[in-house]
Simulated scan of single mutants.
Amino acid sequence: MRFSRPKSRATLFFPAIAWTALLCSAAWAADPPKDLLSATRAAIGATNLTPYDVGSRYGQALGASENCPGGKMTEKASVLSSVYSGAHLEEFSVQGKRIYDAWVRAKHCVPEDNPNLCKVVIDESCATALSEIGPSGSALPGLLEISRP
């Protein structure tokens, strides 16, 4: 499997702009409901996950919501960036962007020999995301939901 270069620079800049807008939207939007924010903080505290780990799960939820059929980030995932500030927010954001960028690269995958390889990579990544951050997830449950028609 080979990850090809995007055909235009716009394909490179759009994910960066979307990521920045998503993280900065907390400044423009109203503060999340205190009960949701408190519940999210408690859920994170119960898992002993670091901001780096939670950022990974946030990037996973964002990537899965864009790549998995029927995938959608939950409100719990949307408030994760509000849990942190300062250096912890920076650590969360940097790692979340790394994971999200990996999903973007997978979405733009160009197989060399096997045309189904990219679909298999996305399908396996979606299954893993659902098992780790889905409603009954093993890592940080409730960040991703999949609606099947």
Results as ranks from 00 to 15, higher is better:
Y100Q: 06
A18G: 08
F14L: 14
E90P: 00
A139D: 10
I122E: 03
T50V: 07
Q60L: 12
T74A: 09
M73K: 06
P69Q: 07
K7Y: 13
A26N: 05
L36S: 13
S147W: 01
L80S: 05
A18P: 01
P135G: 03
P33M: 01
G71S: 10
I17A: 15
L36Y: 12
Q95C: 09
K119D: 12
W28S: 15
R41D: 03
Y52H: 15
G134E: 00
D123Q: 11
H88S: 11
D31Q: 14
R2A: 13
D101H: 01
R9I: 08
S85G: 06
G71H: 11
L140E: 03
L22H: 14
A29D: 15
A139W: 04
G137I: 00
A42L: 14
G63P: 05
K97Y: 09
P33C: 03
A21L: 14
G59T: 05
R5E: 14
R148N: 09
N114C: 04
A64C: 09
G71I: 10
I122Q: 07
N48Q: 09
V120C: 00
Y58A: 14
P69C: 02
P141W: 00
L62F: 11
V54P: 03
A106H: 07
P15V: 05
A43T: 05
P115Y: 04
A87F: 02
S8G: 12
A16I: 06
W19H: 11
L36N: 10
K72N: 14
G63L: 03
A29V: 06
T20K: 15
Q95R: 15
E124Q: 05
S78G: 09
G59P: 15
P33V: 02
L12S: 07
E112H: 08
S8A: 12
P111I: 00
A27W: 08
E75F: 07
G142Y: 03
H108K: 13
I133S: 03
V79W: 10
T40A: 12
V104Q: 08
W19V: 04
A102M: 13
F13G: 01
L23S: 07
R57S: 06
A43Q: 09
S4P: 01
G71C: 12
S85M: 07
I44T: 11
G45F: 10
A16W: 03
L117K: 02
P33L: 01
A42M: 12
R57H: 12
I99T: 13
I44C: 13
